[in-house]
Amino acid sequence: MIDILSYGCMGIGLLFWFWGTFPLVGKRSVLFKLHSLSVSDTLGSMSIVVGLLLKIPSEWPLLVLALISLAIWNTVLGYVLAYCSSSGNEISEVGDRSEYSAGEYGVSEYGTGGYE
């Protein structure tokens, strides 16, 4: 029973890995790829580690630490990459929020095949 569950978790994790990593090859914007990478690298890896945790519960402290640090670091890295890669493309000092409405550079610049 536990075996099935743990292999199920690992299978879901691997599915997430493949699904989230394939868009990396295509010509999409960095931010779009970040969304799919957060599926694969954070959620997929977390479910693989949960699968391992079910398999060998005796090592739970290390694996729980791995889970926590995986969630935190990958999320923060996603934020840092999004921040660093996007702020090159816009006015850095925005005085007033009406200066750019949501659609202004959102869809037009990062749309399909947006980056060169």
Binding site: H35, S38, T75, V76
Partner: peptide
């Protein structure tokens, strides 16, 4: 920011 970025559909770009 962690919460917003953790869910895959949303990413915080910047905090003003």
């Amino acid at each position: 920011i962690f919460l917003i970025t953790f869910t895959p559909k949303t990413i915080v770009l910047k905090y003003h």
